[in-house]
């Protein structure tokens, strides 16, 4: 009754298709992975091996010299202290900036979503709009303002800038999350005599962990990776790690030490890569927030 070849043929056809599909997907995975792979292997080679060898070859003799140099003694311009001080600058500016902007976003989002007053929607629209301006349009007046405030070229100055221009996004995140919590819940709590803070503390805060994660990770990634504000509003000694990395790589003095550049790039990228590896789910949710569901 059944013809065995007619039965097998579509199955092998399907199998070939599956393997083809798989091969294409893996090829793309390689496309995304190769730069990271090249960065890591280059950072573990000596300069001689880099000059003699091949871009994608594994290191013949592994050496961590480039990492030591990148961390502690690579030169950017006249300073030769490696990335270390700048890495700590980034930590010192990112931690408070993330904390303050997230806190403000939570409060704003709570008010806009659940304690509407006349004009609250307009305020929200104005804030939302602020998320989309190209920051070039505020660079000049901000430079002058920081000067007037005595914050020019300081880390608190950078914290201030990141908080100001982060509020829009953090408010958006929390607002969109808190509007999904039924108003009836708040009404019932009000009838029971609970006030603004009580309701937040006992109803909203316990529900906030996911959006807190999304917001903190989003802000952390944005601020750690920032270059524009960092390069515009810092001075020698207060530069964040991205600016220092760029200075080391484009330093014109001496021999180009590609292995040191790659080690420095990995060091600068490590914190955000680490966060992505352990909490990628929240990172993706932050990226797609507001764009898929509106």
């Amino acid at each position: 009754m059944t013809n065995p070849t007619a039965f097998i043929a579509p199955r092998t056809g399907k199998l070939i298709m599956r393997w083809l599909l798989f091969a294409i997907l893996v090829a793309f995975a390689l496309f995304y992975l190769i730069p990271l792979f090249v960065m890591i292997t280059t950072s573990l080679k000596s300069l001689d091996e880099i000059r003699a060898g091949n871009l994608v070859a594994l290191p013949v003799s592994v050496t961590f010299d480039a990492w030591r140099t990148a961390w502690a003694s690579a030169c950017s311009g006249i300073q030769c202290e490696g990335l270390r001080p700048y890495f700590w600058n980034s930590v010192l500016l990112t931690v408070p900036a993330v904390a303050i902007s997230t806190l403000l976003g939570a409060v704003n989002g709570y008010v806009i979503a659940q304690w509407k007053f006349r004009g609250a929607n307009l305020i929200f629209s104005l804030m939302l709009f602020g998320c989309f301006i190209p920051f070039q349009v505020v660079l000049l007046p901000m430079a002058r303002t920081l000067g007037i405030l005595g914050l020019a070229g300081t880390i608190p100055g950078l914290v201030f800038v990141h908080v100001i221009y982060g509020i829009g996004f953090t408010t958006l995140f929390f607002r969109n999350y808190y509007v999904t919590i039924p108003v009836e819940l708040v009404k019932a709590a009000k009838v029971d005599g609970a006030g603004f803070f009580r309701i937040y503390w006992s109803i909203f805060l316990p529900l906030s962990l996911p959006i807190l994660m999304v917001t903190v990770i989003w802000q952390f990634t944005q601020i750690w990776n920032d270059f524009l504000f960092g390069v515009s509003f810092s001075q020698a000694g207060t530069q964040p790690v991205t600016v220092a990395l760029n200075n080391i790589v484009n330093s014109t003095t001496g021999v180009k030490e590609y292995n040191v550049n790659m080690a420095a790039a990995i060091i600068a990228a490590f914190p955000t890569l680490f966060v992505y590896a352990v909490a990628g789910k929240y990172f993706i949710r932050g990226l797609t927030a507001g764009s898929v569901k509106g």
């Binding site: 990776n225 790039a265 990228a269 955000t272």
Partner: peptide
């Protein structure tokens, strides 16, 4: 996870890496 990780990198890191490649 592999396709999306570059989005977690600073553009400065991306630029440095591709400049070398």
């Amino acid at each position: 996870t592999i396709y999306l990780y570059p989005m977690a990198l600073s553009m400065i890191v991306t630029g440095t890496s591709w400049k070398w490649i």
